[in-house]
Nucleic acid binder design. Structure first.
Lengths: 303, 303
DNA sequence: CTGAAAGCGCTTACAG
DNA sequence: CTGAAAGCGCTTACAG
C-alpha cells in the first residue's frame, strides 16, 4: 500500500465507470447558463455532489436535440437536475436516469419536481400592492410558453380579479430589456390609465423597468411601485432596493441535488431509502424593500 | 446500419473513453460558482466545447486539496480552463493535462494565460477620474493576495502617482458588502479629506458603495464619482448606470475554450496545429456611463 | 475489404 | 483469506 501511494497511483475513472456501470457524475441542464438566477443553484448542486464524491457536468439545455439526447444516454451521468421544462418529453423520458425537475417543470415528464408555488407567490405580490392601495396593476410577464411565466401570470390575474383590481399584462421574456420596453409602453399610456403598481415576472425585468422609468423622469415608488421575482443577489442593493418574491435558490439546489443522489444510491442498492423527505417543499416569501409604496395619483413625468 | 439506429443503440462513453484514453470533456474550475462574473464565461466555454463534441464539467476550485487533485487526475477531463490563481502550483502542475489560465493567473503555473491587462485597465480608470478633475481618489481593492486585486491596485497607485493625485486604498474583497463598508468608512472621513473619486475593484463592490452612499444621503456622481470593474450585465441598468472597465467575458470564455481544445487536439495528433492565434490578447476598455462626473467640492450628506 | 482477436484499466465473482 | 480469471463495451491493429 505504501508503494502504491508512493508511485502516485490513481484509479482510472473511465475504467472504473465502465466496470461498475456508473459515472459518479450528475448533470445539470439549464436553458441559459449565463442567467444569474441559476448561478447559486449550480453552486449548491456542485457542493452537494462534491460531498457525495460525485462530479458535476453542466450544459445549456438548448443545444440541439441530438446533443441533448446523448448527454443523458451515453452513460456519463448517473442522474440529472433539470431546470428546463421546455424539452421534448420523449427526450427527457427516454433517458433512463434518476432525474429531478427543479424550478421549471413539465407535466409530461415522468419525474419528481421541486420548486415554489409560483401561482401563490404571484398572489402575494398582488396582495402587497392591494394593501398599499393600488387599484390598477400591471404584470410584465415571462415568455408565453414558459410554465413559470404562465403560473405567475395566472396567479396575478386570479388574485387581482378576486380583489376587483384592474389588471393588465405586458408580454415580456424575463429580461432587462423586456422590463425597459414595458416601462416605455407604460409611460405612453394616458396618465389616468397608467397602472400605479407593476409586478414583474423576474428581478432582471424589474431592474429594467425601474431603470427605464427613472431615465424617463419618473420616480419609484413615487410614481409607480415595482415588485420583482426571485430575489437575486443585487436586489437589495438596487436603488431603490427591490421589493420582490424571495426564492431560496441555494436551498433549492441543495435539496434537488440530495434527492437525485438519493435516487442514484437507491438504484445501486446503497443505503436504505432516501435521506431526504421527498415531500419537503420550498417556500417563497415576499420581501418588502423600497421599490413599493402607497398608491399615488397618476402624474406625468418631469422631463 | 438501419437496424442499429432502429434499436436505439448508443455508444457507451465510458467504454470508448477507456479504449481511446480520452474523456471528451473539459473541466472548468472557478473559485466561486455563484459569482456573476463567471456565468457568461461558463456559457461561452460550454458553447465552444459542445460545438467540438466535448462535454463540460464544472467545479468550485476551493473544495479541498484531495478532491481538486483527483479532478485533474482521474482521466475524466482532457483539458482544463482554470479561473483560479490561488491553487497550489504542485497540484496544478501535477495534472498532466492541457490547461489554460483565464482571468486570474499564477506565475508558478506552467500554462498559458489569457486575460486583460489589469494594471493598464486600472490606469484607464484613474485617467478618467483625473480628466474629470478629481484629485483625491480612493480605491476599494480586492482580496490582498489575489493577483487581479494586486494588479488593479498597483495600476491605480502607479497612475495616480504619475498624475500627482492623492490616492488612498480601502482593503476589500470584491463583494457588495465590502463596497458598502468602504462607503461607510468614506463618509466618516472629514469632508475636506474625502476622496471625490472612487475606483472599485469590481462592479459588485461599486454597487455596494453607491447603494450605501445613497442610503446615507449622498448623491452619485454629485458627491462622489464611482467606477467599477468588469461590466457585468446589470452595470448599465444600475441607477446611476455604472461607469466601469469592460471585460469581454464571452469572448474570453470562447477563446480560452478554443485554445484548450486546440491543445487537446494537438496532443492527440488531430489537426495541424492551433486554429487560434495563441498570441491573441484580450482588450479591456473604459465604458463611461453616469456614475462619474466632474469633481465637486466636498460637502456633508443631507441626512 | 471483412472479421475475429486483443486490450484499454479497472472490479467482482469465484477457485484454491 | 488470497490470487488469478473473466468481463464491462468499446476501438484498433492485424490476419485472412
Amino acid at each position: 500500500m505504501r508503494a502504491v501511494s508512493e508511485t502516485g497511483y490513481r484509479v482510472n475513472a473511465a475504467a472504473r465507470d465502465l466496470r461498475q456501470r456508473r459515472a459518479r457524475s450528475i448533470l445539470i441542464l439549464a436553458p441559459n447558463l449565463s442567467n444569474t438566477f441559476f448561478s447559486r443553484i449550480f453552486a449548491a448542486v456542485q457542493e452537494e455532489a462534491s460531498a457525495a464524491g460525485l462530479t458535476v457536468q453542466i450544459s445549456d439545455s438548448r443545444i440541439g436535440r441530438d446533443r441533448i439526447l446523448s448527454l443523458g444516454h451515453d452513460g456519463r451521468a448517473d442522474g440529472i437536475v433539470l431546470l428546463d421544462g421546455g424539452l421534448e418529453p420523449e427526450v427527457v423520458n427516454g433517458w433512463q436516469l434518476p432525474l429531478i425537475q427543479l424550478s421549471e417543470w413539465n407535466d409530461a415528464y415522468v419525474a419528481p419536481h421541486l420548486g415554489i408555488d409560483n401561482h401563490a407567490a404571484a398572489s402575494l405580490a398582488v396582495e402587497h400592492l392591494a394593501e398599499l392601495g393600488h387599484h390598477s396593476v400591471m404584470h410584465v410577464s415571462g415568455p408565453k410558453h414558459n410554465v413559470l411565466a404562465v403560473a405567475r401570470r395566472d396567479g396575478f390575474l386570479a388574485e387581482s380579479a378576486k380583489r376587483a383590481m384592474e389588471p393588465s399584462v405586458f408580454s415580456g421574456d424575463f429580461t432587462l430589456e423586456a422590463g425597459a420596453e414595458a416601462a416605455r409602453r407604460w409611460a405612453r399610456l394616458p396618465v389616468l390609465d397608467r397602472p400605479t403598481g407593476v409586478f414583474c415576472a423576474s428581478d432582471e425585468c424589474a431592474f429594467g423597468f425601474i431603470s427605464e422609468s427613472v431615465h424617463m423622469g419618473y420616480t419609484v415608488p413615487g410614481d409607480v411601485s415595482v415588485i420583482g421575482f426571485d430575489d437575486i443577489d443585487f436586489a437589495d442593493r438596487f436603488l431603490p432596493a427591490l421589493t420582490t418574491i424571495h426564492q431560496p435558490r441555494a436551498e433549492m439546489g441543495r435539496i434537488a441535488a440530495k434527492r437525485v443522489i438519493d435516487m442514484i444510491r437507491c438504484l445501486h442498492r446503497e443505503g436504505l431509502g432516501p435521506s431526504e423527505d421527498p415531500t419537503q417543499s420550498i417556500e417563497a416569501s415576499l420581501v418588502v424593500r423600497s421599490s413599493t409604496g402607497p398608491a399615488s395619483r397618476g402624474r406625468d413625468a418631469v422631463t
